[in-house]
Design a protein around this nucleic acid. Structure first.
Length: 255
DNA sequence: ATGGTTGAAGATCAA
């Protein structure tokens, strides 16, 4: 089973890229972030024609998350019961015996800001929620835009990023607290190329210069991580005209 | 030189 995560930065704009990529990469499950549309605007018909079932947790203008799968999605949940939130940032479903939680973590804007406090509260809620999910579902994958670069090597230039938003110690501690539940950062189960990133700012030709961060992750429970055979960032969609600022990440499992 | 780009909304905000 290939499980992917991709922040598309507007699904309506990026649908052609998504459909082309689904055909080329053939993922079994895809967690999508920043659909930026309401459920009525979600392209269910186009995705069904491409061979995918879909579930969406939509919001006008901002946020919005979806799960796509080649098998039916069951037990779909759109809320963390332990953390009330008006922003649509979570969707979970069961696919082929694997529980998949897809998240769009709060960006946080700047360390010390009101949004940063919300980010840390939100991550504490996510930790509680994932703990509960792990009790119910031993085989758990958590796809998402975490808006956290876990370590200095996940940034193109630690001198620029260390201590700032996406790279501050409280954010990294919150990320480690998720791993402490019994989850693995699947990307780091394998040897990886140096300077592997998943997001590059649209400005300053950042992608061409590989000035990126690794902030999109697929966490796997220990039971699922044991079945992981490889993880890779797909750079091709980021090279297209009018791309998302994020590239998809794909983890492969023998389940 | 406190810059730059994109998306959605709507004449600004979030990322």
């Amino acid at each position: 089973m290939k499980i992917a995560s991709w922040n598309v930065n507007s699904l309506r704009v990026r649908l052609p890229h998504l459909l082309d990529w689904l055909k080329a990469a053939e993922p079994d499950v895809v967690g999508i972030q920043e659909t930026k549309c309401v459920d009525e605007q979600f392209p269910f018909a186009e995705l069904e024609a491409a061979g995918y079932f879909a579930a969406h947790n939509g919001q006008k203008t901002y946020n919005g998350v979806a799960l796509l799968a080649r098998q039916p999605l069951t037990e779909v949940c759109r809320d963390m019961e332990c953390f009330a939130d008006e922003q649509r940032r979570v969707i979970a479903a069961t696919v082929g015996g694997v529980r998949v939680v897809n998240v769009y973590v709060v960006n946080g804007q700047a360390v010390g800001s009101e949004k940063y406090d919300y980010k840390l509260r939100w991550l504490a809620g996510l930790r509680q929620y994932l703990g509960e999910e792990l009790q119910k579902y031993p085989k758990l994958a958590v796809t998402g835009d975490y808006n956290i670069a876990p370590a200095p090597e996940d940034t193109h230039d630690p001198a620029v990023w260390e201590g700032g938003i996406l790279c501050s110690e409280p954010e990294r501690a919150a990320f480690r607290a998720l791993l402490d539940l019994g989850l693995k950062d699947s990307f780091r189960l394998f040897e990886q190329p140096a300077a592997s990133f998943t997001w590059w700012d649209y400005r300053q030709a950042a992608f061409r210069r590989n000035m990126g961060l690794r902030i999109d992750h697929i966490l796997a429970s220990d039971a699922l991580a044991a079945a992981c055979t490889g993880v890779r960032v797909h750079l091709e969609p980021r090279r297209l005209e009018r791309p998302s600022d994020h590239a998809p990440v794909v983890s492969e499992f023998t389940v």
